[in-house]
Write a protein that binds this DNA or RNA. Structure first.
Lengths: 141, 141
DNA sequence: GTGCTTGCAAACGTTTTGCAGACTC
DNA sequence: GAGTCTGCAAAACGTTTGCAAGCAC
C-alpha cells in the first residue's frame, strides 16, 4: 500500500485529501522507524511550519481508524506511530531502551495456548514487551 | 512478607515509618486487586483525609524501589499498583476491559525461545498483554 | 455550498516537583 | 538535631477538545 492508495482510502471513507494529511503520511513513510506524534510534527513542519501538533494527532488517529497506521507504547514515554506493514512484536529493553522487532510467528504457540485455555485472542501489537537485552543483562550482573 | 516485614524493610533502607506509609501499605494489602494511585488515596483517606495524592505517589514509588509493589499498565488509563506476590501475566480485553491473570508458566516456552534467539529476557509484569476476550470476540463477529 | 479539516487556545487526566514546615529516629 | 517525609500548589507531560475560519469536493 503506497501513498496514493492510502489517500484513495481516505477519500473513500468520506475524508478529504489535505496538505496536512499528505505531509503526515509522507513523513511516516520516510521515517521507517517508530516515531512519536511530536516527531511527526517536527518532520512535517520542515516543509509546512504552520501544521499544528493537534492536527498531527487528529490525522494519526484517523489513519489508525483506516488501519494504515498503528501506535505502540514503549516504556513510559509517548506513544509511537508506524505504518502497518507486517505485524511484529516489539521487545524494548527497560534499561537502555533498545527496541527489537520479533516476528509474530515466535509468539504463535503461546497465543494458541492462551486461546485454548482462556479463549482470549492476544493482540501483541499495541504494547511492547518489556525486558532486558543481553548487553544490559551482562552489565547488571 | 507481611506488613511488619515491609515496614522493617523501609527502616532498613533508611526510610521512616510514617502514618501515610502505614496506611498506604494497608490499603494495598486489603485491596487484593490492582488499584490505581487515586484509588489508594481514596481508601487511605477514609481514615486519614489529610493524606495527599502526591504522598501516595511518592510512597508507591518508594515501595516499588524496595520491590514490595509493582505497577502495571492496562490499556490507556492510569497505572495500577499491587503487591508483588506471585508473578503472573495480565491479559486485558481491549473491548470490555476485563482482566485475566495467567500463570507465568504458560509464557515460559515463549520466553525461552526469545532468550535463545535474541538474548533478551522478557519481564512480562510491567505491561499487560492486550487482546480480546471470548465474549467480545463473539459479540464482534 | 456542504461539511470535513484546520490552527489556536485551552482543558484534560495522570504524574512529578519545589518548597517550607512537620515528623521519625 | 539530622535528615526524611508531608501537604500544598503548581508545573509537567502527552493528549484531547471546542470553536470559528478555511479548504476539499
Amino acid at each position: 500500500m503506497d501513498e496514493n492508495d492510502v489517500l484513495a482510502l481516505v477519500r473513500l471513507s468520506g475524508g478529504r485529501v489535505t496538505k496536512s494529511r499528505h505531509a503526515i503520511l509522507k513523513s511516516l513513510i520516510n521515517a521507517k522507524e517508530h516515531i512519536t506524534a511530536e516527531e511527526v510534527a517536527g518532520l512535517v513542519r520542515e516543509q509546512y511550519p504552520e501544521i499544528h501538533l493537534s492536527t498531527v494527532y487528529r490525522n494519526l488517529e484517523e489513519l489508525e481508524k483506516l488501519g494504515v497506521v498503528v501506535h505502540t507504547h514503549f516504556l513510559h514515554g509517548p506513544a509511537t506511530y508506524h505504518l502497518e506493514n507486517e505485524i511484529h512484536v516489539h521487545l524494548v529493553c527497560e534499561s537502555c531502551g533498545q527496541i527489537l522487532e520479533v516476528s509474530l510467528e515466535l509468539l504463535n504457540p503461546f497465543m494458541r495456548e492462551i486461546k485454548k485455555n482462556f479463549n482470549f485472542s492476544i493482540n501483541p501489537k499495541h504494547f511492547a514487551l518489556q525486558g532486558m537485552c543481553g548487553v544490559c543483562t551482562k552489565a547488571e550482573s
